[in-house]
């Protein structure tokens, strides 16, 4: 009887361990995926904030869209936004059309490739794809959207 009780107890312990191992084997992956989702959401949330977002100015409402004309205007008044976004770095890079990687200024805009709003020396950088839209004038005024990425850096000491 005693041996049978020991056998049953051991079996239940082993079965419990098996369940625990299976149950928690995906926890790390889930945590990493959730962390990635949260950071990407943070990046998108930043891109969709009124200071960056295209809103309805390009016809229909567009999400994941940054109005670069607005950002360039914002760049000249960064002193008013000290600590406003709660992150250490914000950079916007043009991906396509491929061109120069030069920092945008009022002199070379829009023939440039990068807008640095907050320059972070260190920290964790997370990025997401965005549309970079602006009003372009040629023979007529039209909306021009290019492909870019927004990089948000946080966690610097």
């Amino acid at each position: 009887m005693a041996f049978m009780l020991i056998a049953v107890t051991l079996f239940l312990i082993l079965a419990g361990l098996f369940i625990i191992v299976i149950r928690f084997s995906g926890v790390r992956e889930s945590a990493e995926a959730l962390d990635e989702k949260n950071t990407l959401l943070l990046v998108s949330k930043l891109a969709d904030s009124p200071e960056f977002a295209c809103g309805n100015i390009f016809g229909e409402p567009m999400s994941n869209c940054i109005d670069t004309d607005k950002v360039m205007a914002l760049k000249g008044r960064l002193g008013d936004y000290d600590g406003f976004w709660g992150v250490d770095g914000i950079e916007i890079h043009k991906i396509y059309p491929v061109g120069t990687n030069e920092e945008c200024t009022l002199d070379n805009y829009p023939e440039c490739g990068k807008i640095t709003l907050l320059d972070a020396e260190e920290g964790t950088g997370k990025e997401n794809f965005v549309s970079l839209c602006r009003k372009e004038s040629g023979d007529f005024i039209y909306n021009k959207c290019e492909l870019g990425r927004i990089i948000v850096t946080y966690g610097a000491d």
């Binding site: 869209c65 794809f129 549309s131 959207c145 492909l147």
Partner: peptide, 11 residues
């Protein structure tokens, strides 16, 4: 998804 959305908005 962000890439696809941004690509479809590309001019």
């Amino acid at each position: 998804a962000s890439f696809l959305q941004s690509t479809l908005q590309y001019t």
